[in-house]
Design a protein around this nucleic acid. Sequence first.
DNA 1: GAAAAGATTAAA
DNA 2: TTAATCTTTTCC
Length: 277
Amino acid sequence: MKRTYRFKRVTKPKKSIQPDDSIHTSEKSITIGARPKSQSQPQPGILSISNPTLSFNELKILPPDLFQMDALDLVLKILPPDFFQIDALDLAPCLLGKLLRRDDVILRITEVEAYRPNDSACHGRFGRTPRTAPVFGPGGHAYVYLCYGLHTMLNVVADKEEVGAAVLVRSCEPVCGLETIQQRRGQITEKPVLLTGPGKVCQALGISTEWSNHRLYTPGGLELLDGPEPEKILVGPRVGIQYALPDDVNAPWRFAIAGSPWISAPKKTLTLPSSEI
DNA sequence: GAAAAGATTAAA
DNA sequence: TTAATCTTTTCC
């Protein structure tokens, strides 16, 4: 398994980190900006990272070069298998804010839907079939399928083996690798239209159905990483399941980060839970 | 073996 | 609003 470190910013960066700033990495720190070798302490205007935690905002302003380096392993943490082995209804909101990484692309999950056992909208409702077998595997695997013969959908398998539950990733916000995302999407834009919709997320990650059953908790390929927790969460009924039983159609099992523009249509059906109003 | 439908998207 | 597109499941 990949080693994980916790990092902390020990000096304030300049107003913004420039892409051509030099980067120094070592076992215990990442330093960005010109820093004379003779000086043991970071100078003002230099970002130096050493134990513990790099914040999400800091992550976003790091220069692209850093993300092609092994140093990235020092600041991003892969979530362990245990994280996924819970009810899909509990896992779904927990996935908001988490990061999906494949090669130089990192996406922050902004919208999800839970699919569960005894749920007439869940692909597991027909039992274990060649396509849905991963859904019945242990939590933490990917379940990827083709929808309408055109679009691939990425699910995170939830709960214990044999349960048959998963969480659909419906929308994301770009964190790293914008150019690669735009290239794969065939659309040069930074607006939400780039990543709001489950088919778009898969396209941006370059994921096909061959990725179904891939382990998200092992380094390499497609990974699910820890990320900043959202402040408030919106809930609402799931999208595009009119064929299901009324109780399941109405179940509020769709979740999204409140205030985020990176949410797919329809948005009006999402609200703060009654307990927070 | 045939037919219907689908956890969608982009364009008109 | 609709076409595009194809795998899975179900029905005969």
